[in-house]
Design a protein around this nucleic acid. Structure first.
Lengths: 227, 227, 227, 227
DNA sequence: AATGAATGAGGGTTCATTCAT
DNA sequence: GATGAATGAACCCTCATTCAT
């Protein structure tokens, strides 16, 4: 190794060592999430993940024995098991169910869409058929409890008379579809192709909530609380 | 192939070969579309495409010099340039704008969602960041005209007083998001993980249309034309 | 690629193609046998096997999906199932059992020791514990029938009164051990370390046969047929 | 390690460490011998050697700078330089040369075959061509003096008239081959594949000695000292 | 002296692409 | 045009070796 390289490594190596074994898996998972979301599983090279995490190729395999293990860990790591907490939040919610729907979609954005976990949705949808085991896992850990949560909100509205009698099984998609669409587009077309007009998530959500609650059709009476 | 063998080939063989030759690229594109949608670009092997199309690996490269060329062709081939025709259809549409919305979403399903072209949506969204050129192309060939079409429908409703005054830029997603979501899920999670309840596209669409037009909120007056 | 290289490849490529698909596996197995015997399984690089067979690395994997498959094929290929034929040969043998023993060991040398199959013995013994499945296979395909053959020879001698009453289970090693030793040394120490005196297989065998039949101990009576 | 921790260590710990430190290389060599014999040089991982010796990977390289150094040390360590002593033993031997032969083979088994040094034979024969320097070393340190020892025994028998006049250069293999075969098989096929009948080294040796001294052929006169 | 996290060259394997037939 | 054997660059992963602690 040339002297210049040795000298250049000095501080780096020190800093890297100092970072600790415990921090490594997290750094690697972050790097991997970004790349898997950006390029997909197959097109992401292990070495690139390692490089982005600031370590060598070998180090990656010290923590994740195979690329698939890394992928699994990325998905599991970013699937918050926070539905219990969120359910409680909605149980304690005081206010109209319309506000709950609005709150639900905003939280979805703030707590997932605006965080690094947002890429997971696109990742899962893109790779589901290559990783059926993970798809199943996601179905059970995210979709099932998420759907249940949304369903309870809608049911509350119906029970209280705030909402019309609707087909619950399909109504959940009224909330789920626009949010999933938002997260996916964020990490695909909107991330690379120039759009024709700016996309503001808050306005997007407000618009979707408004349609969902009140419909497009004009009606005589005044409406309260259009965000 | 020796001349003697060629001479021995019946006329049928020549005829079949001739007919098949015309069909080749199409068969290859069909096979490629299926596989790209199922596994992604990188995880799809060229040989598999050829095998599914019933030809040899060499033949594939005869028609598409590289795998990327094949991918481009798959996307371009499956992007309907029928927006002109569809625009005319809506120009000639007689009926309420609510019916137009309903018609629009049903046609979207029938003419794209229920055909093999439906995979393109998933393909583009999954691979956009690896193929920005194609994403750009898709943006211009599909998203722009599609958005414009939807926009015109909504504008008609507003102009006629059927619809409330809404933020048009975001309102288009009221139609686009649920349809895109449907197409995406068809080719990812719903295709591999067992769902908790059956998914019927027609009911899904009916439900989304109903919400979009009339909202979830209960209201005193009667409504016309809920599908 | 520089022109010189292209020019140089011309004839080679032609010759190689001409060699035929059917010949490839055999050429690869020959190359692999040599290298496995020389360096062991783990220390032999796949590329080297391919190079020695005059093909590229990729071609090797066209015929043998993994290095272990190649190893298995090498062993199986070189394990002649000719014990049936040899048994018949000995059944038809006319002459003294002493001659049979002598004939047996000479044939062992001529038909195995002096051919490329001779390396298999060293290979199996060296790698047995890394490939228990193959060791088992070898035990059943070679050791068991080989032992049986030798056993029948000795039994014939005892039955006819030519040989003393001996412990048959261990007596077979009187023939097997010196032959195995010869084959192993051929491919290990004798192949690389300078010996103190020349080793002539024929004299080695003659000497071993002589000891085996007549012993080292002097005896009064004359002996017939010492080779 | 912080000073406080060092201070906290009892005297016992220091004592143990002191004792162990002396033992380290030996423990490593023992572990390495076992693994090299079992799997061969290339297939044995350094870390596994360290683990079996109960130390860390780093410690192994503290004592043996490279894996090859370790291999060399293993071989050199396990090559008994006791030929001088053994020669004296045979010089002082009182009894028939037949008994010497018997004694020689039994000692070979007891002092080498039944100890962990027995693996060296298999190791050398398996790896000779990858380590010609070691093969040469083995040739000079073991084979040459071993052969000389055996040769002297046989020569004694011939000189005293106990043995027939035989080709000494090849006669040594009458003793060397069966013993080497026994040691090799112990560490290869017999160690992993189920045998067809039990193998008792003592009976094996007795049988080989009997053949070697008296031959298989029946003879009229009585024999003395068949073990 | 001992540790074990980190490294990166090396080797097995895949697969897009070529080209003689 | 069609084939499929052959190629070799590229990628996943291993493991001997280093070195900060």
């Amino acid at each position: 190794m040339p002297l210049s390289k040795l000298a250049a490594r000095g501080n780096d190596a020190f800093a890297r060592r100092g970072r600790r074994k415990e921090a490594r898996p997290g750094e690697l998972l972050d790097a991997a999430l970004d790349l898997f979301v950006e390029k997909g599983f197959a097109a992401t090279r292990s070495e690139e993940v390692a490089a982005r995490a600031g370590v060598s190729k070998g180090t990656l395999f010290l923590y994740f024995p195979t690329k698939e293990d890394l992928f699994e860990a990325v998905v599991r790591e970013n699937i918050s098991g926070r539905f219990g907490e969120w359910n409680e939040e909605f149980d304690a919610f005081e206010g109209s169910t319309a506000d709950m729907v609005r709150y639900c979609m905003r939280m979805w954005w703030e707590r997932i869409g605006a965080t690094r976990a947002s890429g997971i949705t696109k990742l899962i949808i893109s790779e589901a058929r290559n990783f059926p085991k993970l798809a199943e896992f996601y179905q059970q850990e995210v979709i099932r409890p998420g759907t249940a949560l949304v369903r309870r909100i809608l049911q509350r509205g119906i029970a209280s008379g705030e909402f019309r009698g609707i087909d619950l099984d399909y109504a959940v998609y009224g909330i789920v579809a626009p949010m999933t669409f938002l997260l996916m587009m964020q990490h695909s077309l909107w991330a690379c192709a120039p759009q024709d007009w700016p996309m503001d998530p808050d306005r997007y959500i407000a618009s979707q909530v408004d349609h969902l609650l009140h419909g497009l059709c004009a009606r005589p009476q005044t409406r309260e609380g259009t965000a």
